[in-house]
Design a protein around this nucleic acid. Structure first.
Lengths: 167, 167
DNA sequence: CCTATCTAGTTAAACTTTCAAGAAAAGGTC
DNA sequence: GACCTTTTCTTGAAAGTTTAACTAGATAGG
């Protein structure tokens, strides 16, 4: 028999282990770096900033809660808390959805848009300096392809996968 | 003049934007996926699990707090709280450092080692399924190189960078 | 229509992380 | 040695996240 619980574990090769370790180091350090940059320059963590960016790019600068959670790859609960905080800051407001009385739209306010406009250059510069200025065009292309593969694998289409925004 | 504050922002190209978005999606989903896998199978988040792994690979299964924080790329404060929790679980214990009375060693207990031995196969399988089974050997090699570049950039040698374990 | 089930979003409590402050020992410098 | 600075680690409170439970509205089947 060859069930997962009894077959010998397929350990990682040396190269895989090194890649995995490097992945963990880089992602942890980058997340920390951007969180600090944004906390300093925009007064919020990276996740929250990403929500504002999503809203700024959405039609009429608004989006249904679940849709926003899906785009940000987070749970609806986490989003509820985040929007509550951003609302307190005056950068987002809630609005009832006209077509579905259960629904809420998160709307980017003018203040929110303005804060984004001010902080975007610094943030792009931080991302560029940490990532894109250090990689060759081939590496950027390769990284994009790899990350698309991983994201797709973790978010398979048409399945009942355990995805954050469905919990 | 060309100071950062006044020069035109160097926005990301389309390809860079797509790579960045894919990076955020993949890393967020993978972190969530592994956190859930480990919470379910080992009763702790991924960060904590990583600490036990580090200890298991250290000489005499113990390590100075700051050294452990450096390896995990986290703050000493975060580590203090994490070790306190793992200590409560009986998987780690603290020990005074003989050579420096300020210092503490975190020591992996036999119980901790045993829980690691039990959960390691499942965790490796999850990592493999999410990442290594989906990438070609060339992609694994490329990913490793890219992540080393990023990690090195965020952790420059011989500088006064703002690194978590020095805060 | 009536009921069961599902979906959208929120909430309280437990847990984790960050931030600011502080205690204690080590390492200069005079 | 006395003094000042740095290093090591911890702590309590605030902020953020997860988990489970819950409300309200939508949807489907009889």
């Amino acid at each position: 028999m060859t069930t997962a619980s009894t077959s010998a574990p397929r350990w990682l090769t040396d190269e895989e282990q090194h890649a995995w370790r490097a992945y963990l180091h880089a992602t942890t350090l980058l997340e920390d770096h951007l969180d600090r940059q944004l906390q300093r320059d925009a007064g919020m963590p990276h996740t929250y900033y990403g929500l504002l960016v999503q809203l700024s790019q959405a039609p009429r600068r608004r989006m249904r809660m679940t849709e926003l959670a899906r785009n940000a790859k987070i749970t609806r609960s986490r989003l509820s808390h985040a929007i509550a905080r951003l609302e307190k800051n005056g950068w987002v407001r809630r609005e009832d959805c006209p077509s579905d009385k259960r629904g809420q739209n998160a709307v980017l306010t003018d203040d929110g848009y303005e804060m984004l406009r001010r902080s975007a250059p610094g943030h792009v510069e931080a991302v560029r300096q940490a990532m894109f200025d250090r990689l060759t065009p081939e590496q950027v292309s390769s990284l994009g392809e790899i990350m698309r593969v991983l994201a797709t694998g973790l978010e398979p289409e048409g399945t009942d996968a355990d995805l954050p925004w469905l919990r």
